[in-house]
């Protein structure tokens, strides 16, 4: 019984972690699906989001940071797209890999030079502190609030991609960019918007984790691998694939900490390997001609 309680508790808790992975992985998946760029700098945008929280919240509070930081990082993404990413959509993926790898290093080092290497303190806002007890369960009030916010953000992204003209063109661009071009639609502005949206989501995750995780220059690298695993498990081109994969990864990690903590991080990679063996395109991956 105790084990069952613990297991349920870990599952609920794992959902939060999964939700944070989701915000980062959604953007990674979008940028790769549409632009063919594996964005190794995605973690850097997440880190910048966390640092902007520290800069912005003395003036606008945590709530203000939730809005302002993603917008500012989105603008940064716009610059990155216009001056860097744009040149690499049609080239060998290895080039964009090198580009974004370098960009990640530059960003991390820039943070180190501006803010210093030691972690900066930042706490949960007073109103969101405390725990909620449900019988034997303990839930962090902060995490529950954030989980709700993630659900809203992800629902908004879903609506944007599935129910608007913008989303239809983006999805068509993922499937067949040449056909989209033949129809007289330029993907350029859409790509810029997708990059803005994607890095903005990563920054949102950074704001959300700043109160409960160390804010330090290398924090982006810490989340990036997990997010990539989510993208690979979920499969390219599928919105729900990424959602399901993120939640699975969060929950599996939580349960592994319960039964065999030494294997908790490795379990995620083992899971990825198994899923790739069974479904090489990931759980819900679509067949995208140019990636085959």
């Amino acid at each position: 019984m105790l084990f069952l309680t613990l297991a349920v508790e870990q599952i609920v808790n794992g959902l939060f972690l999964g939700a944070i992975y989701l915000l980062i992985a959604l953007g990674l998946s979008l940028i790769f699906s549409l632009g063919g760029i594996v964005n190794l700098a995605h973690g850097a945008f997440y880190a910048i989001g966390a640092y902007l929280t520290i800069v912005v919240s003395p003036y606008l509070g945590f709530g203000g940071s939730l809005v302002v930081a993603p917008v500012l990082v989105g603008l940064l993404g716009l610059l990155a797209e216009k001056f860097l990413f744009r040149r690499f959509y049609r080239s060998d993926p290895i080039l964009s890999l090198l580009l974004t790898f370098g960009l990640a290093m530059v960003a991390e080092q820039a943070i180190r030079m501006i803010f210093g290497a030691p972690p900066l303190p930042y706490s949960i806002p007073q109103a969101l502190r405390g725990q909620i007890f449900l019988g034997d369960f303990v839930l962090s009030r902060y995490r529950l609030t954030i989980l709700a916010a993630v659900v809203v953000a992800v629902a908004a992204v879903w609506f944007l991609l599935q129910r608007t003209t913008f989303g239809r063109i983006v999805r068509a661009g993922v499937q067949n960019p040449d056909m989209v071009a033949a129809l007289g639609i330029s993907l350029k502005p859409y790509m810029a918007a997708v990059v803005m949206l994607s890095v903005g989501l990563a920054a949102l995750a950074g704001v959300m984790l700043a109160p409960i995780s160390g804010v330090h220059p290398a924090m982006g690298a810490e989340v990036l691998t997990g997010a990539f695993v989510v993208v690979v498990i979920g499969g390219l081109g599928s919105f729900w694939g990424v959602v399901v994969a993120a939640l699975i990864v969060g929950v599996v990690r939580g349960l592994m900490v319960l039964v065999y903590p030494g294997f908790a991080e490795a379990a995620i990679y083992a899971l990825m390997a198994v899923i790739l063996l069974v479904r090489p395109r990931g759980l819900f991956g679509e067949r995208i001609l140019r990636f085959e």
Partner: peptide, 20 residues
């Protein structure tokens, strides 16, 4: 006594175990 990977950033799963 539990080993935590050096790149682990989330301790909530451990904290829940500790609480129990």
């Amino acid at each position: 006594d539990e080993l935590v990977p050096t790149d682990a950033t989330d301790f909530s799963a451990y904290l829940i175990k500790i609480r129990q």
